[in-house]
């Protein structure tokens, strides 16, 4: 019984800690969630432009490195060109939709 009470107490503490952490995180991140997500997306858009710039005729001194990243970013390419206002892929030899 005593051991149950101990566990119950610890459990309550853990639950309280989880709830308090959740409230603190929501209070910290909630108001700025969209601002930070937007800033992150802007950063990603610039990064995508760097990675795919060579394919659009813009010289890229780091193409040796960025070429390796292209297959990894393929899944994000479609969302990116649509965000940039291009309904279809801008690259003739690189179609995604």
């Amino acid at each position: 019984m005593a051991s149950d009470g101990k566990h119950g107490g610890a459990g309550r503490w853990r639950q309280w800690f989880r709830r308090a952490s959740y409230c603190a995180e929501e209070l910290y991140f909630g108001r700025y969630r969209s601002t930070i997500a937007r800033a992150r997306r802007d950063e990603e858009d610039l990064f995508m432009l760097l990675v795919y710039s060579e394919m659009m005729g813009v010289p890229n001194p780091a193409s040796y490195y960025t070429m390796e990243l292209q297959p990894l970013l393929l899944e994000r390419f479609h969302d990116w060109h649509r965000r940039m206002g291009m309904e279809r892929s801008p690259l003739d030899h690189f179609r995604c939709c």
Binding site: C23, E26, L27, G30, R31, R33, S34, A37, R38, R41
Partner: peptide, 19 residues
């Protein structure tokens, strides 16, 4: 990205501390 439904007590906390 902009719309994040949140618990009303948490929103109150945000709103109160902002105003």
């Amino acid at each position: 990205m902009d719309y994040v439904p949140t618990n009303k007590f948490i929103i109150w906390g945000h709103h109160f501390t902002s105003v």
